[in-house]
Write a protein that binds this DNA or RNA. Structure first.
Lengths: 84, 84
DNA sequence: TCCGTATTTCGATGAAAATCAAAATAAGAA
DNA sequence: TTCTTATTTTGATTTTCATCGAAATACGGA
């Protein structure tokens, strides 16, 4: 049950977000970018999903992950409000 | 060797930053706000310092911690650039 | 120099998180 | 329904992190 800060604290998860920035990816495509097992990448994806930093849609057997830009906007607002 | 995201992933450290938002505090004053030992709070302060989220000045025996607002600005810029 | 206060560093411990291999689930095709 | 592919879940292991008590350091005052 991770919040957005916890989700961002891991380097692999930040790399995943960077990949998703260019375009949506399937779980398998993301997997291929790392020297990690599918189980591990799937775990990171679930943390990102829990924090609502990514969204998913299913197409046949594949699950497509994409950025939830709203979450980033919220984060910026949080930081911006903090500084006031 | 924690970065800004790692530093923000801990709730106690975020509370420390909130306290520092109102005014600078000595290490001892910050300590008094938590049910944690001085050693533990000192550890959290060192993580925040490493991430450059706080600055310190020494006055006699006491060390005064204050927010480094520039780091927050940088963070906002990073997130903002990411979304472009 | 010796003492007291403030803070940090060290070494150990328990809890949380990352990771893997293997089993389970989901969906479409044969 | 059985097979294949894509992905997740489970259970175990390893690694990282928060935490503590005790020892060490830094500084100013007597």
């Amino acid at each position: 049950m991770k919040d957005v800060w916890g989700a961002l604290s891991d380097g692999t998860r930040r790399e995943i977000l960077t990949l998703l920035k260019s375009r949506p990816h399937t779980a398998g495509e993301l997997c291929d970018q790392f020297e990690l097992t599918g189980a591990t990448v799937s775990h990171h994806l679930s943390v990102l999903k829990e924090a609502e930093l990514v969204k998913t849609t299913r197409r046949a057997q594949t699950i497509i992950y994409s950025l939830n830009t709203a979450a980033f906007q919220n984060m910026m607002k949080t930081v911006s409000d903090f500084l006031k």
